[in-house]
Design a protein around this nucleic acid. Structure first.
Length: 803
RNA sequence: GCGGAUGUGGCGGAAUUGGCAGACGCGCUAGACUUAGGAUCUAGUAUCUUACGAUGUGGGGGUUCAAGUCCCUUCAUCCGCACCA
């Protein structure tokens, strides 16, 4: 027998698959399809991470299995290649991002091929390819034309290091996610997409798909729906009303003051009546200088300023109450104003205590002089006029119907999710295809002029004022208006990185199409994605953004399914061997290439699938990887013990049928670790037998093939098992043959195991008792005692209760 | 603060509807083969105990013939959201 030379074997088979186009999809196939999608990588300079390997190998296993099950399988890969790291690197080294990107893609491609993934490379896509982003821009224009893209002047988060405006999601703790620099507030005109209009659809759509529960939950939290009421508080002596959002209209009688966000427009509206304007402006200035992080995280001590000169009127008690500005109220949520109920809200209670404001108990149960009483999901209303004596739920309904009857308010739904800040002030992104005309306003670039490409320039460094580098290139941004023909300027912002990934799954199966982003016929065949796997870090933003685009495209009749992904799963992190998150600074990064060189791609794949519970984080272990190499060595050596004989060996038949069943279902449930454990167990059985038939080995090889395709293909070839392994069919099991005829069963006395008996699986209780009591040790426990009860579960347990 | 999850050997982790806890792998121990072993093979490996046996799935309590699994309570860790009105 030849030796297991992983380098040669893997090289040979990768070449064979490439030359034979083994994994190319069938066009116009009558076969049932399977679309397995993995999150396409950002091709960074550092190369592939073992985390990618975990994410990709799982669906790789499913894809290879599906092909053997007769499906037409689409398992594609591409590049999410716009983005800051490439641009930053390009600036640093004075090279063009295009060049850097191509280089990185080449590195990633080589690595993915060396792992032996069964991607259909003819369907590769690249978000930075003009032929691709033509359609990203085109979809943006459809959003614009349907009123879902708009510009608004707001305060944005500007990173001093990257010189770029960040979405709320792109920084944490006041520091930029990418460079760690401080993030400050800057006023700017930016693009938004109205994802909030799709909040309800995005929630409802979750009922039609199969996402892991924790994924669904994170999406629901992110959308953050809450049902409450909007209530108008009149301003004494004015026609103006101050509108608040509250989830607890039942506590209206306890509202003793109001708080509005520092940016609230009411201040400007009533400036004439306000007597302490200077003080308010001072507070506004201070608030503006705080980042959102400081307002939220650091401002534990409530600050605020009372607005002098105006008073609100509580619509149910008709008493005049003061109005404050305070930065614990956010302009971005609800109406930017609240009615403060200090008796039952901790923040309001702190504020009221600090400013000496009245605190009224309206729900029985606590002591509001000591602390806010917030255990108020139920309880009895007090001090609340017509609500007195009611239960909370009843009171909420009663309050709302009162407000609606009196025209003071109405039931309202609010969402935490904000509109999607859709812009970057950088070079390496899709240009937003809009032209600003002094006469016609914002005009879309005509669709036949797409793609709107980036100018080829020397300098693409960011400006200091928060404008895109494109704003430094007059020959690019100076243009004529497509409507009036007059001089006009192009939008110089580019799209955020989330853009290209919001629709990429629609492009794979029709990646050469220049007339439409994808043909309807092909979409009708391939959509939806049957199974989408990726990281937990993308289950809110990316998943919601792409579902939003897809639902929009569905609404305008351009895609055939409401939801893009039928099923979504997520893998756990792979940690360094010290149990910490892998990072360069900790020096605990595992390079997949090293494993491939030393042990082979099959070992890498097997170990990463074996490492632990797929959904949980697991620390890398070099010894664990070595153990998997040992396993494959032992698999290779099975060739030595194959002897003549048809079918399965007598002593192995049940074990083989059991293993087929277990491996088949474990793969589907992403329990790769136990599937591999089951194959290891079967291997041990084989070796105990010291000889096996060709059919024993054949089934084993097929089960292992999706995980370790190179070694299994080679064994298949060397053992002359017939035809091509990649064209054979997945092994079947016979349910009847998965159960042992004779079982070993524990015998318990009073619930404690005192011995085991061997008996036919379908033996009755009397038989079991006879065999059990024929054993001395068991008899010694029953002698002199009375058997009061016998529990016999065939095939499981025999428990004798004695007194 | 709110929401979710997870606690099992020295380590990663297994355990249908409650039915022999610790599968499988790592590590470790002993032996075999070897010039050698950081290769390979064989055997062993939860804890306490000389043994019989007892104990054991974060802690405490409960249901049951039987609990890692069900119920109550408590602690710890991780993740998500977070002055969200």
């Amino acid at each position: 027998m030849s030796t297991y030379d992983h380098k040669q074997i893997e090289k040979d088979w990768q070449k064979y698959w490439e030359e034979n186009e083994t994994f190319r999809i069938e066009e116009n196939s009558k076969k049932e399809k399977f679309y397995g999608l993995v999150e396409f990588p950002y091709p960074s300079g550092v190369g592939l991470h073992v985390g990618h390997v975990r994410a990709y190998t799982s669906l790789e296993v499913i894809a290879r299995k599906r092909r053997l099950e007769g499906f037409n399988v689409l398992f594609p890969i591409g590049w999410d290649a716009f983005g800051l790291p490439t641009e930053n690197y390009a600036i640093k080294t004075g090279r063009h991002p295009r060049e850097v990107t191509d280089e990185n893609i080449a590195v990633f491609t080589d690595q993915l091929k060396r792992i032996g993934y069964s991607f259909d490379w003819s369907k590769e896509i690249d978000t930075t390819d003009p032929k691709y982003f033509k359609w990203t821009q085109w979809i943006f224009l459809q959003l614009f034309k349907h009123g879902l893209a708009f510009r608004d002047r707001t305060y944005v988060n500007f990173c001093n290091g990257c010189k770029v405006v960040l979405a709320n999601e792109d920084f944490r703790d006041g520091k930029c996610d990418r460079c760690g620099s401080e993030v400050v507030q800057l006023e700017k005109d930016v693009w938004f997409l109205k994802i909030r209009e799709y909040a309800e659809k995005l929630l409802a759509g979750l009922d039609d798909v199969d996402y892991l529960p924790r994924i669904r939950l994170e999406q629901e939290n992110w959308i953050g729906k809450s049902i409450g009421a909007e209530v108008d508080f009149a301003i004494a002596g004015h026609d103006n009303a101050l509108r608040v959002f509250t989830t607890r209209p039942d506590t209206l009688f306890g509202a003793t003051f109001m708080v509005i966000a520092p940016e609230h427009p009411l201040i400007a509206e009533l400036a004439a009546d306000i007597t302490n304007m200077a003080e308010l402006v001072d507070y506004q200035e201070k608030a503006k200088r705080k980042t959102e992080f400081e307002r939220v995280q650091l401002a534990k001590d409530k600050t605020g300023v009372r607005i002098l000169g105006i008073q609100a009127i509580n619509p149910v008690t008709h008493t005049e109450i003061p109005i404050f500005i305070a930065d614990y109220v956010m302009m971005g949520y609800g109406t930017g104003a609240i009615m403060a109920v200090p008796g039952h809200d901790t923040r309001d209670w702190e504020f009221a205590t600090k400013f000496g404001l009245p605190i009224i108990e309206v729900i029985k149960g606590g002591d509001v002089s000591e602390a806010a009483y917030t255990d108020t999901d139920s309880g009895e209303m007090v001090n609340s006029g017509f609500l007195n004596g009611m239960e909370v739920k009843q009171a909420i309904a009663a309050a709302i119907s009162y407000l609606e009857k009196e025209n003071l308010g109405k039931q309202t739904i609010n969402y935490k999710m904000k509109d999607w800040a859709f812009n970057r002030q950088r070079y390496w992104g899709e240009p937003i295809p809009i032209i600003h005309c002094p006469k016609c306003g914002m005009v879309p670039v005509p669709e036949n002029e797409l793609p709107l490409e980036l100018p080829k320039v020397e300098s693409y460094e960011p400006t200091d004022n928060g404008k895109s580098p494109l704003a430094n290139i007059p020959e690019w941004y100076q243009t004529t208006c497509p409507v009036c023909g007059g001089p006009a300027e192009r939008e110089t912002d580019t799209m955020p990185q989330w853009a290209g990934s919001s629709w990429y799954f629609l492009r794979y199966f029709d990646n050469q199409n220049d007339d439409e982003f994808a043909s309807m016929d092909k979409m009708k065949y391939w959509l939806p994605v049957d199974w989408y796997n990726g990281g937990m870090e993308h289950v809110t933003r990316h998943l919601l953004y792409s579902r939003f685009w897809h639902q929009f495209l569905y609404d305008i009749g351009l895609v055939p399914t409401k939801e893009p992904y039928a099923k979504r799963t997520a893998q756990g992190l792979i940690l360094g061997n010290d149990g910490d998150k892998m990072s360069k600074s900790k020096g605990n990064v595992v390079n997949p290439n090293e494993i491939i060189d030393n042990y082979g791609a099959d070992t890498l794949r097997t170990y990463i699938m074996f490492i632990g519970d797929y959904e949980k984080a697991a620390p890398w272990s070099d010894n664990g990887a070595k153990g998997c190499r040992r396993f494959l060595d032992r698999v290779w050596k099975l060739q030595d013990i194959v002897t003549d004989g048809e079918g399965y060996s007598n002593g192995l038949e049940t074990a083989i049928h059991k293993t087929i069943k277990k491996v088949s279902s474990d793969y589907e449930e992403m329990k790769y670790n136990t599937a591999i454990a089951a194959m290891m167990t079967l291997l041990n059985e084989f070796n105990k037998q010291s000889k096996i038939t060709q059919d024993d080995l054949k089934t084993f090889i097929l089960l292992l093939y999706p995980v370790a395709p190179h070694i299994t293909s080679q064994i298949w070839k060397e053992m002359k098992m017939g035809g091509r392994l990649d064209q054979t069919t997945w092994p079947q099991y016979d349910e009847a043959k998965t159960v042992d005829n004779v079982v070993e069963m524990a015998v318990q006395i009073n619930g404690k195991v005192r011995g085991t008996i061997t008996l036919p699986v379908d033996a009755d209780k009397d038989t079991a008792r006879a065999i059990a009591l024929s054993q001395e040790t068991i008899l010694s426990y029953t002698q002199g005692k009375t058997i009061v009860k016998e529990i016999y579960v065939p095939g499981k347990i025999f428990n004798i209760v004695v007194k």
